[in-house]
């Protein structure tokens, strides 16, 4: 529309910020819609996993494979350290000082560096 005075700066700024908020809200709504739309496919995929769980007789998720209390938390020995949470902080403070050996577990030696483990 011609002949209309330009908007004051404050109004333009408010509109810009409101537009940004609107964009944020729209993005969130879009994500919610995406979650909703991908639900049938996800349910199909989970049904396939559930079928495998049934057919093989599985009891646990293969998320943390490092030790038995974490690979099979549901069936782990009672009272094992970490039993209630595989990724929890160690039971013993020493746990925070012994990092993972770079060369893997080998024969199960732990050390502060590769040399120490090799020795």
């Amino acid at each position: 529309m011609s002949g209309r005075a330009p908007l004051p700066r404050a109004t333009r700024r408010l509109r810009l910020v409101l537009a940004l908020f609107g964009a944020g809200l729209a993005a969130l709504a879009l994500e919610a819609a995406h979650a909703r739309l991908s639900r049938p496919a996800a349910e199909l995929r989970m049904a396939a996993s559930a079928e495998l769980v049934r057919a093989a007789g599985l009891t646990d998720l293969a998320l943390f494979t490092e030790a038995r209390h974490s690979r099979n938390p549901a069936l782990a020995d009672l009272h094992t350290a970490f039993q209630d949470a595989p990724m929890s902080f160690g039971h013993f403070p020493s746990g925070s000082f012994a990092p993972r050996p770079a060369a893997g577990f080998g024969k199960g030696t732990l050390g502060f560096d590769a040399d120490e483990v090799r020795r």
Binding site: E31, A32, H34, R45, L63, T65, S70, R100
Partner: peptide
């Protein structure tokens, strides 16, 4: 953080959900 000390970490898709 999740992988921890394990060598195998599943390469799995997660079902999106809000």
């Amino acid at each position: 953080v999740l992988k921890g000390w394990s060598v195998i970490y599943p390469d799995f898709p997660l079902a999106p959900e809000i």
